[in-house]
């Protein structure tokens, strides 16, 4: 089976600025790919090239078998795209805006009205259908942008920060919507909210300085964390003594002490890379006769991994 999105050696420079450098990846139907990276990393530029807005300086893009260079219009007809900031014609109402987009997307008559009805219901736009878009709140504007992107039920959905500016409930709704659509579509979202990667993405890519630095599942990303499989526990012992004793265990890299705002102290036992120490730690606690009020295994901190990967790049980039 061919991939829905194929990106090969994609590059873009604006004069001497290399916004995107030699990025390659594929997205299959059923995948939700998260584009991660600091601001200015090249996420948006990459999306603008895949959707046919910007001409790549080098490299190839194919969407559903259509090459960006040879069949740009067919390529665009397969994609639903939410550009950064969800631009829309402010003087239009959401319903006339969706009618316009639908017509251009080749929807007509009853079918168009049915689709608008479905999309409006699933995105909860009913209340603002007849208001001018420029008078809507940021959250509603974003939802109008989303509605426009999924109106023609595209095979490929590309969204630049789909939950930016939404409140937590709206964020939750949009994520649920993305998960519902995920089984039949190839979806790419860019975000810098790391929890989003965990909750909706099946794969993730990290871009910084225009380069692709990581590609894998969110699980693999977490596994890169120093804290992956670390054991956090609270015990009825002096923390410093416990820290000393736990540090002596095999496969233990270090033991951190953290005190939270209500005064509870927790020890985090960090394993040597690639090892699992939950059994050692619990055995040790039992044989010592300590009482543990809390024991949990950390899955890893995405923000920490993100920082490590992207700042390494920044210091590496400064040298070249």
């Amino acid at each position: 089976m061919s991939y829905a999105i194929e990106v090969q050696n994609l590059s873009k420079s604006f004069g001497s600025l290399h916004a995107v450098r030699d990025i390659s990846f594929n997205v299959a139907r059923g995948d939700v790919l998260g584009f991660l990276g600091p601001n200015g990393a090249g996420k948006s530029t990459a999306m603008k090239m895949i959707t046919g807005f910007l001409e790549p300086t080098a490299g190839r893009v194919r969407v559903c078998g259509h090459d960006l260079h040879e069949e740009p219009v067919q390529l665009k007809s397969r994609i639903g795209y939410l550009p950064e900031g969800a631009p829309a014609y402010g003087e239009m109402t959401p319903v006339s805006f969706l009618e316009f987009i639908g017509e251009i997307r080749g929807l007509r008559g009853r079918h168009l009205q049915d689709r608008i009805g479905e999309v409006v219901r699933s995105i909860h736009l009913e209340a603002v259908l007849e208001q001018r878009i420029e008078t809507l709140s940021k959250g509603y504007k974003r939802r109008v942008g989303l509605a426009q992107a999924i109106l023609h039920d595209p095979e490929v959905l590309i969204m630049d920060e789909p939950t930016d500016g939404l409140d937590p409930n709206q964020k939750h709704e949009v994520r649920t919507l993305i998960r519902e659509m995920a089984s039949t579509k190839a979806i790419v979202i860019s975000t810098h909210i790391l929890e989003e990667v965990d909750s909706v993405c099946t794969r993730a890519i990290i871009i910084a300085g225009g380069r692709l630095l990581f590609e894998g599942t969110p699980g693999e990303l977490e596994a890169r964390s120093r804290l992956h499989n670390a054991v956090t526990l609270s015990v009825n012992r002096d923390s410093f003594a416990a820290q000393r004793e736990l540090s002596a265990l095999g496969n233990v890299d270090s033991v951190d002490i953290r005190t939270d705002s209500s005064g509870n102290t927790r020890l985090t036992v960090v394993p040597a890379a690639g090892t699992n120490i939950i059994n050692e730690v619990t055995d040790f606690v039992r044989t010592r006769g300590w009482t543990a009020t809390e024991v949990r295994v950390e899955s890893g901190r995405l923000d920490e991994v993100f920082r490590t990967i992207t700042t390494q790049q920044a210091s590496g980039g400064a040298r070249t």
Partner: peptide
């Protein structure tokens, strides 16, 4: 200015 050019140019129109 409003960024709608990005929307328009990524619709299937020449």
């Amino acid at each position: 200015k409003s960024g709608t050019i990005e929307l328009l140019m990524t619709l299937p129109v020449t």
